[in-house]
Design a protein around this nucleic acid. Sequence first.
DNA 1: TAAATACTAGATTGATCAGTCCAAATTGGG
DNA 2: CCCAATTTGGACTGATCAATCTAGTATTTA
Lengths: 193, 193
Amino acid sequence: MPRTKEFDPDVALDAAMELFWSRGYEATSTADLVEHLGIARASLYATFGSKHQLYVRALDRYIQSRDPLVVETLSRPGPALPAVRELLEGFVREATGEQRERGCLVVNAAVERLPGDRVVARCVESSWNTVEVALTSALLRAKAQGELRDGAEPRRIARFLLVFLEGLRVVGKGGWDERHLRDAVTEALSTFA
Amino acid sequence: MPRTKEFDPDVALDAAMELFWSRGYEATSTADLVEHLGIARASLYATFGSKHQLYVRALDRYIQSRDPLVVETLSRPGPALPAVRELLEGFVREATGEQRERGCLVVNAAVERLPGDRVVARCVESSWNTVEVALTSALLRAKAQGELRDGAEPRRIARFLLVFLEGLRVVGKGGWDERHLRDAVTEALSTFA
DNA sequence: TAAATACTAGATTGATCAGTCCAAATTGGG
DNA sequence: CCCAATTTGGACTGATCAATCTAGTATTTA
């Protein structure tokens, strides 16, 4: 009977995610991965198949661990617009906090790997779609609860917000201070809120 | 007396810009560059020094060739808000046209090279600052000409628009159709226009 | 204990990397 | 013509790349 696995693949996956997140796909070597994952080279290939498959699984883990938080934030009962505001403020915190320089792995992956990498493209589109749907849902609720001005179109606002959010993740890589980002958010919210 | 240079460095620089723009820094090899620049390996190094220096010069050339167009668009006499709208629509065209998949070299450079590459960081910040200043200038003019609602703050709106613009360049890499992007732009403009 | 599996470290492969060097060919000015 | 400078193609370096393989060590179940 087989010996049980010793290392936790999810722990290794987290370590890989950190590396790819910080350095990108091309700039992360398998030697880096072997060193930081704490498992032998052969185990890495036996478990994950290839560098690219490991990258995709790390990206997927990133998405699976973060998108639900966005959905939860936007799905809380009660007024919807404060939840949207809180989401934006969370993005500002991420874009100015300790891990500002890493940006967002989904954006990094999209910029580095698209359009050539169709697998990554699918992950990126899926994640962005999740956020767009969650935003649309929250804004439809906001409209039904009378939180939006007459004539506001939730689907359109959701698309606008998604673009703005991705912009935040990019601009965060440059050295914008928090006040400037807050200005931008204030203005973005003033569109409809 | 010295023999005159035979190839035009700017032509070679354009070719390098195209390559780095399409593939990124890491994924572009010096062999690729030699092939596409149409000059010998030795000439490449004699003229540009290193792959990194060539990259920075290509990035700089990209910025120098595009930022002035943004500034011009936003500096036309007359009403300022139509110029802002035209700028956004131009970004949408770029994000849906033939070269959609390449994105924006400045954004690509920021995502791939920051925060480690300080030289690239300087280029990126410079370019974004140029756009922010041009936007601020146009919006100040708009305010003075009574195109903005009372209480509108040009500097804040400019920061907001810059974030939104960078978002457009990222989302363009995913397969968003033009209608969705136009929705987002419409909503962005409705903030103040 | 014995078979089966998981894991390790490290050697190895062939390709590719950025960058250097060189000899030969080319082109200009004096 | 002749010297100086430029360009060329290709050889070359040492490093690193992703990926495979080997040999041996641990750990489990039967």
